[in-house]
Amino acid sequence: MEPILKARGLVKRFGKVTAIDHADFDLMPGEILAVIGDNGAGKSSLIKAVSGALTPDAGTVTLDGRTVAFRSPIEAREAGIETVYQQLAMSPALSIADNMFMGRELRRQGLLGRWFRMLDKPAMQAFAREKLNELGLATIQNINQAVESLSGGQRQGVAVARAAAFGSKVVILDEPTAALGVKESRRVLELIQDVKSRGIPIILISHNMPHVFEVADRIHVHRLGKRLCVVKPGDCTMSDAVAYMTGAKLPEAPAAA
């Protein structure tokens, strides 16, 4: 089976710092791929390079068999790659509904929409409300409240709901449960399974080993800016994975699976 999203020989340097060092990456159709690695291993840079937020210095990215070179997150989004970044990418002073539809607003039907380009606020609010309820974010009282008035976990929930609602080819989640409570984390994991059951593959970056081993089909271990190996949760233990990513132990068959 061909990977739906594939990267070969990616390099990204920031001055003298090498963030990505000839990294390879494969995401198979319909799978949940976890990316784990130490702090500073370059996980986030790798994800940004395939989602258009960073332009790699060298290497190729292939989506659905076609070589792509995203110059901005907008282009990646148009190609169907939806990303939740660690810093969440929200406009604090705008409402939840405004944020969910940022860059893909719905317009009114007919004259008001076509000539006066009026936004369809009721439809956007109803949609946003529905998606947040799916995620169990019932503690959000008012869909029109500004994002700055939400707690960290609620903001995370809104960002995840946005990605899950709009991703059509690939959904990338960078530390989606880092700021969440037990119940909300569980919801996010269920949501990940739900997105997978719709046939959309997911890239999950996380430090939470129990979560990774629970939902991932394969685990990409990132170390020192490149892929160290890919393991299956059934074939190794959490301790092995941690040993690989910290360099305490070397994998037996490099880049297997």
């Binding site: 937020a53 901005s72 997150p73 907008i74 989004r77 990303t83 970044y85 810093q87 969440l88 990418a89 929200m90 406009s91 604090p92 002073a93 705008l94 405004d98 944020n99 940022m102 860059g103 893909r104 607003e105 317009r107 006066f116 380009r117 009026m118 936004l119 606020k121 946005r162």
Partner: peptide
Amino acid sequence: RHTAWGRHVYAVGDDPEAAELSGVN
């Protein structure tokens, strides 16, 4: 208040990086 362009003006003023990442030109 009522067009996408207007919402983008506010988003860019609020946090240009976040606006860029969430898909605003």
